[in-house]
Simulated scan of single mutants.
Amino acid sequence: MESFIFLEYSTLRFLWWVFLGALLIGFAVTDGFDLGVASLLPLVAKSDKERRVLINSIGPVWEGNQVWLITAGGAIFAAWPLIYAASFSGFYLAMLLVLVALIIRPVGFKYRSKLESSSWRSSWDYLLCFSGVVASLVFGVAMGNIILGVPIEFDQISLRVSYNGNFFGLFRPFSLVTGVLSVVMLAMHGANFLALKTEGVLQERSMFYGKIFSFLTVVVFVVAGFLVKNIDGQIITSIIDYNGPSNPLLKVIELQKGAWLLNYEKWPMVCIVPIVGILGPIASFIAIGKQYHVSAFIGSSVSIAAIIVTVGVSLFPFLMPSSFGNCSSGLTVWDSSSSHLTLWVMFLSTLLFLPIVIAYTSFVYRVMRGKVNDKSVAESHNSY
């Protein structure tokens, strides 16, 4: 009875690993399509009226979509404090770059139509495109660096984290590949959303670019998968105390080429995850050709989720491997969490509030459903 009321520490750690993945997927699927729309502004829209249609297609929902990112950051801070500390130490400048890109978006949305000047509006449109591409790229580069290992080290006594890399060191060949994967994946998602929300020539262009980026997503994802085979993954060779204290220095790590693929040998059933990551864009490509726009959007959403889960399954139980020294400073599910009580209280809060958030988000999307065109933009007093 006690184990049911008060879940074991190891169980809560695993559940919060699942919750963290769900929050990242929620952010990538929701905010991902409006980042993709911003990235596609110069390609799909050829005039001011067309660009206004694109911006207003995401106007009612983009602010709510970013809540997923804020929630994920809060969850990391509360449930995985060592991850929070290490990531802000290692990726500080990269996060600052993302922050600048995300700040540009609301400013661009609010100010681009305040003046009739074509140069004024074009400047904001290119800044919006810049923000979409940069944010997508940096998120992907960060994921690539986690797979490669982050040069972090924890002090033996105080467990104070130090970062032994630099900003430009983040942009390594493999991390650039994962960065490109993020850009083309979210561009695919954005194009599918535009095909769903627009009509006429804008819809035709969106379908065209949806096919292109669906194809590129498959290609880059497969290339990244082959590259992972030649990357030094990590294996824990010491005994794991799943209910032990959050001290990353208590484990022993061994480097092994291709070790990030061992979980697929251990649990063959999870091989379905990367397969879905490949089939999703293919299904989206086919659905676009048949003008099944809802199916295409679902296909890109499933693909994004599967690609994120692929990374999580590959790294498990690691959350942020270290590439510094003997790599023992790497953070795992079992040695980087908050206390048992903290995870339990947060778990109960999540069970209470997450369904409310999902219900409200679903309600907003339902209310804001329908096509966006020149007429609806002109008639609305709240359009951008």
Rank of each mutant, 00 (worst) to 15 (best):
T217W: 05
S117N: 15
S238N: 06
E199S: 02
I298N: 07
I55T: 04
P321T: 06
A72I: 07
G258L: 10
V252A: 03
Q66W: 14
G132L: 03
E379C: 02
V273S: 08
F285Y: 15
I253W: 07
F14M: 09
P106N: 04
F347Y: 12
L115G: 05
T30M: 04
N166T: 12
T332R: 01
F318R: 07
C271Q: 15
I275E: 10
F193L: 02
F171A: 01
F4Q: 14
A135W: 11
I25Y: 01
A72H: 08
L15V: 03
L41M: 01
S136P: 07
I104Q: 01
N247W: 11
R366A: 11
V134Q: 05
N373K: 02
A306F: 01
L115N: 10
S329V: 10
E116N: 15
L12E: 03
I157D: 14
S131K: 09
V134F: 09
Y163I: 11
L343H: 12
L137I: 10
V345I: 14
M95E: 08
S338I: 09
A45R: 02
A75N: 08
F77G: 09
V372L: 00
K371I: 08
K266A: 12
S328L: 13
I308M: 01
V177D: 04
M95S: 12
V357E: 13
L40E: 04
V141C: 12
Y126C: 07
M368D: 08
G21C: 11
L159M: 05
V180D: 03
G165R: 13
P173A: 11
S87T: 13
E204P: 00
L40R: 03
Y84R: 06
F19A: 11
T361N: 05
I147W: 02
V228A: 04
R172Y: 08
L343V: 12
R205A: 07
F91Q: 10
M188H: 07
G59M: 13
S136I: 06
L196D: 01
A378G: 06
L315E: 11
G200S: 00
R366K: 12
L202I: 01
A306M: 02
S123Q: 14
V377E: 09
W124H: 06
M207V: 12
Q234P: 15
I304W: 03
F168V: 10
Y163S: 10
N164T: 07
M1C: 14
V345Q: 08
V161N: 05
F109I: 13
G299I: 05
Y360G: 00
F19S: 12
D241T: 07
F215A: 15
Y111W: 10
V184M: 08
V218D: 05
Y365P: 04
G149K: 08
I358Y: 07
I152Y: 07
S113N: 14
L354R: 04
L348A: 14
S300C: 09
V313S: 13
A38I: 09
F109E: 13
N243M: 14
V218S: 02
Y163V: 12
G299R: 02
L352K: 08
G26N: 01
A296K: 03
S322V: 13
S206Q: 01
